[in-house]
Design a protein around this nucleic acid. Structure first.
Length: 913
DNA sequence: GCAAGGTC
């Protein structure tokens, strides 16, 4: 690296702001020239500089993130160009998309005239991959380029000058890891998205989307686990089984005030035990103070602000969506008011001049005086901030970069977010809040109770961080050994509540913990759930799955695949790490991962009936699934596998002339076909499987005939089988023919299509027995034994729910009850009804209901613990009387233990001492 | 019309 003639050095950063900062720092803003490039955002900065005695004419420009995209070869881009399983081996290539061509040309023009190329991309794996994209473009026009990488962790003077004097070579392994990630994401995403969209979109009435034609049912390794979190919590809430618990509360009023003591056992689920203990306390109610503890407690300010924390706090404090937060933060960043908003880093580098950042805020009308106090050494308020231990080696934590009292163009959300960034910064360089906490423990008849109070001694950071509070209350003074009689001692009941729906902050935490997405993309994945109609968000920023979202997760869950769980992404992340440190090769992980995923895809495809069944729970079948629009391109619904060529499926299709047929997908190589009768107006494949035709499964078809086309004694609606067992269908074919094309039933390959194959059960009666219970009168799919024996699976639960919803109404409010399966350790698999109103706690076990009480009547009162096989009443029938708790909720089979009156509990007994 | 990751 020596020589006296200046060399031309092309410097490329990941984004325009970094190019500007690097040029400013290196040139010290002396002799710095700026000119426009071909791309309007990516300007070129020029100045003279010396790198290790080598005079350099520096040109600093930028890209805007990735320069290239990965996609399939043209031949595979159209959705119907191939089977989606081919996408695991279809050739892929990187190309520069149209909107990046200007940047590419600019790099080419400059690279031709340069000797060196220095890459200033972010120092993470994606940055390294972008570096190689830049290298590819530049070396294509100049093979002699000397290629260097600048490593820096923050855009501060010392870092930048040091990094340019200590250039290294780019790291191919980091870039390889990203290449592998891109290819896996593309192949998995495209194959599953095409598969499930083509399978389900036209098979069901999905009218919520407005424009059904453009509906895409996407699958992605990040969006699906995100959906999984939402569905899982929803299911957890649905299967929650409320349990009664009991607790003893004690209070003491004195001249100094009121102290509320909590029972140190917390909640007790055994009523008998609770009553016995309560009785003991009531009989010997004198309390003795056994412990008085005074302690200093500190409440620490938050760590410096990372992107996820910004999103979580903006959601919590202002109810802003993560997507909107990022949009506003991006605008504040572009205008220079805050630092780069996409960062994982939650600790400041020791080189950062934190005092300078605080000094800038001294003039603000709201928090300026706090900033002044903070900077005054006398106050002792300043504290060097802690670190959460995350560092993306590319960006500092989010902090204010320019003072503002609010700009005229700013919306309320701009003001709020800027305020949050500033207050958060000032808070994290402040001393923690200090509190004095007092805890008093008392003993009543051997039972321990405790009360605590807190006084804030010094608010410190809480003075500026108005978003957080530290609640506390005073309690009277107590002395060790002091005795008193409580003012009140009550036995109170309550019920356990399910957890709440996931909030946006919860969802971000789940994703962060499982490594789903990056700081720059997590909000995109959340938004995608809403855009794809997989989930909805209520005004409280809490997420629920839609029917579509729940059905998709349920379908894959029923297949036994955890494609909706975060494990796949975690596994991929481990592989990426292995590639980036050189313990595995890119080709190796690509091969194993894609092989596994292809096997999984093929299995999912062969189990698609599970997806269809899950969808059927929520959606009506549509009559568009038979390939109405485009015979060549529409795959149709599968009826059975082809018994002729054994290579493909037989699918239901509608010909352009309106008549239906079931033909082999391997046409024209295989010409196996079943022509269906004329006069059919609608036909759709159901998930019901014929239990006599073989080889199975043969799915039954729901037909709708034109009234005018069939004799009056035939029903226009007919659930038929094309496997050969369906005599009614045969008769209708005889009567109606198969349309103008085939006036006579023409068997393919010389066999009559409606005949069962040679090894079929010939002569099966039309009313065949259910395979599950051996009874006639219903199909195996409708078998009641299957509905109630659903093994607690999600699908079983929903089926039960659908079939049983209206059979009971709530005793408390009269609303219908829903039928569920318990999933708790003690009652797993046990069925119960719960009031459909979430806020109503009424529930009743199915096995405690009188047999003659289920026909649309009202449910009995909730059973006593005796009927649940636990507690005092075990093996005893509960007396049929009504009791109420202190809040008036009815509970059966109880009697006041003080006076024996069945109309109330002891805690509200008038005879209580 | 598919993914996720950069970024404007």
């Amino acid at each position: 690296m020596s020589g006296s003639r200046p060399i031309r050095v092309l410097n490329v950063a990941e984004k325009p702001s970094v190019a500007k900062a690097v040029a400013g720092i290196l040139s010290r803003n002396r002799g710095l020239r700026v000119r426009d490039g071909r791309s309007r955002y990516n300007r070129i900065f020029e100045f003279e500089y010396t790198i290790r005695s080598q005079a350099c004419h520096m040109l600093v420009t930028s890209v805007t993130g990735h320069l290239m995209e990965l996609d399939f070869d043209e031949r595979y881009r159209k959705w119907y160009s191939c089977d989606p399983s081919d996408l695991y081996s279809a050739p892929v290539r990187k190309h520069v998309p149209q909107d990046k061509v200007d940047i590419k040309r600019c790099l080419e023009e400059e690279a031709r005239k340069c000797q060196w190329l220095i890459l200033w991309l972010d120092c993470d794996r994606e940055g390294e991959n972008i570096a190689f994209e830049v290298v590819e473009v530049c070396t294509a026009v100049n093979h002699h380029l000397n290629i260097w990488r600048a490593r820096f962790s923050a855009l501060i003077d010392r870092e930048i000058h040091e990094s340019v004097q200590n250039l290294v070579r780019p790291n191919q392994l980091f870039a390889d890891a990203v290449d592998a990630r891109q290819e896996i994401d593309l192949r998995i995403g495209a194959s599953f998205t095409r598969f499930q969209t083509m399978l389900l979109k036209d098979a069901f009435v999905l009218d919520f989307a407005g424009d059904e034609k453009n509906l895409v049912l996407s699958y992605g390794p990040c969006q699906f686990p995100t959906l999984g979190f939402v569905v899982e919590r929803f299911w957890e809430i649905q299967s929650h089984e409320p349990e009664e618990f009991w607790t003893i509360n004690c209070s003491h009023t004195s001249d100094e005030g009121i102290a509320t003591f909590n029972w140190m056992r917390g909640h007790m689920f055994d009523h008998t035990c609770a009553v016995i203990i309560y009785e003991m306390c009531v009989e010997e109610p004198t309390a003795t103070v056994t412990r008085v503890r005074n302690q200093e407690k500190l409440k620490y300010p938050p760590y410096p602000l990372s992107t996820i924390e910004l999103q979580k706090r903006a959601s919590r404090y202002f109810r802003m969506s993560s997507e909107h937060t990022m949009k506003v933060a991006e605008e504040l960043y572009q205008a220079g008011f805050i630092s780069y908003p996409r960062t994982e880093t939650d600790g400041f580098s020791v080189n950062t001049d934190l005092h300078a950042i605080a000094r800038e805020q001294q003039g603000h009308p709201l928090w300026g005086s706090y900033a002044q106090q903070l900077l005054d050494p006398e106050s002792g308020l300043w504290r060097n901030p802690g670190s959460g231990g995350h560092d993306d080696k590319a960006h500092p934590p989010i902090h204010p970069t320019k003072f503002s009292t609010g700009e005229s163009r700013w919306s309320q959300d701009h003001n709020r977010l800027y305020e949050l960034v500033v207050r958060h910064f000032l808070a994290c360089v402040s001393q923690p809040a200090v509190g004095a906490e007092t805890t008093v423990e008392i003993d009543i008849a051997g039972e321990l109770f405790s009360a605590s109070g807190r006084v804030i001694v010094a608010k410190n950071y809480l003075d500026v961080y108005r978003f957080e509070s530290w609640g506390g209350s005073m309690i009277p003074n107590y002395l060790f050994g002091q005795q008193f009689v409580p003012t009140s001692l009550t036995l109170d009941s309550g019920v356990t509540r399910p957890p709440p729906l996931l909030s946006e902050a919860d969802l971000l935490s789940c994703m962060d913990k499982a490594g789903i997405g990056t700081d720059a993309t997590m909000h995109d994945h959340i938004k995608k759930l809403l855009d794809r109609f997989y989930a909805t968000k209520d005004t409280n920023t809490r997420f629920s799955p839609t029917n579509l979202g729940e059905a998709l997760v349920m379908g894959y869950d029923e297949m036994g695949y955890e494609l909706w769980k975060p494990y796949l992404r975690s596994m991929m992340e481990c592989d990426m790490k292995a590639v980036s440190v050189g313990t595995k090769r890119k080709a190796e992980i690509l091969e194993t991962c894609l092989q596994q995923m292809k096997a999984c895809f093929l299995d999912a495809k062969s189990n698609k009936v599970k997806l269809l069944e899950a969808m059927e729970i929520f959606f009506e079948r549509s009559n568009r699934g038979g390939g109405v629009r485009d015979e060549q391109h529409d795959v149709g619904q599968v009826v059975r596998s082809c018994g002729s060529c054994h290579q493909s499926d037989m699918v239901l299709k509608r010909k352009p002339d309106g008549n239906f047929m079931v033909g082999c997908l391997h046409f024209p190589q295989c010409r196996n076909v079943v022509w269906l009768p004329g006069g059919i107006s609608e036909a759709a494949v159901t998930s019901q499987i014929c239990n006599s035709c073989t080889p199975g499964p043969v799915f039954k078809i729901q037909f709708k005939f034109q009234r005018i086309a069939i004799p009056h004694h035939y029903n226009v609606d007919h659930l038929g089988c094309i496997g050969g067992c369906d005599d009614t269908l045969k008769e209708l074919i005889e009567i109606c023919g198969t349309g103008p094309r085939n006036p006579v039933i023409t068997p393919a390959r010389g066999r009559r299509p409606m005949e069962p194959s040679s090894n079929a059960q010939r002569g099966t009666t039309r009313q065949s027995a259910c395979v599950h219970c051996r009874q006639t009168g219903h199909s195996s799919n409708d078998c009641p034994s299957q509905i109630s024996d659903s093994r607690g699976s999600q699908r079983g639960r929903r089926l039960s729910l659908q079939n049983r919803t209206t059979t009971l109404s709530c005793n408390a409010c009269g609303e219908p009850c829903i039928f569920r399966t318990a999933n708790t350790a003690n009652n797993r698999g046990r069925k119960f009804y719960k009031c459909q109103r979430e806020e109503c706690n009424f529930f009743v076990w199915e096995d405690s209901i009188d047999n003659n009480d289920t026909g649309g009547g009202r449910a009995r009162s909730p059973p006593s613990r005796g009927s649940r096989g636990r507690g005092r009443g075990e093996g005893r029938s509960a007396p049929n009387v009504s009791f109420v708790t202190a809040t008036g909720e009815p509970i059966s089979g109880r009697r006041c233990f003080i006076c024996g009156d069945p109309s109330h509990f002891a805690n509200v007994c008038p005879n209580r001492g």
